[in-house]
């Protein structure tokens, strides 16, 4: 995550506000994409060419873990599971 409050230069107030406004817009859209994904089947591409799919339930606020249900894996179906986002390369769903 971007830990610094400002990366837009030497404390110029207008720049800071612009950056903060940009952060808000980007973040709101991302959170809405998570809402839109809830209850949908999501296909996950993991490292080592592993592909799984599951129904998306929730994420934590830092986007470190996804809670999913009916996780379909090559070894069977898990009714409830947590996926670590650090293991995921991408995920896809349809609207």
């Amino acid at each position: 995550s971007s830990s610094s409050i400002s990366t837009a230069g030497s404390g110029n107030r207008a720049d800071l506000e612009r950056e903060q406004q940009g952060r808000v817009e980007l973040r709101e859209r991302y959170l809405r994409s998570l809402f839109a994904m809830a209850g949908h089947t999501v296909h996950f591409t993991m490292y080592e060419r592993v592909n799984v799919s599951a129904s998306f339930d929730a994420s934590d606020i830092d986007i470190l873990n996804f809670q999913v249900s009916n996780l379909q894996t090559p070894l069977g179906v898990h009714r409830e599971a947590l996926l670590r986002c650090s293991d995921i390369i991408s995920y896809t769903f349809e609207l």
Binding site: R23, E25, R27, R29, Y30, I63
Partner: peptide, 11 residues
């Protein structure tokens, strides 16, 4: 569509 400013995830 967006880029999450916390995780840098690209949508």
């Amino acid at each position: 569509l967006t880029i999450d400013p916390v995780s840098a995830n690209i949508v």
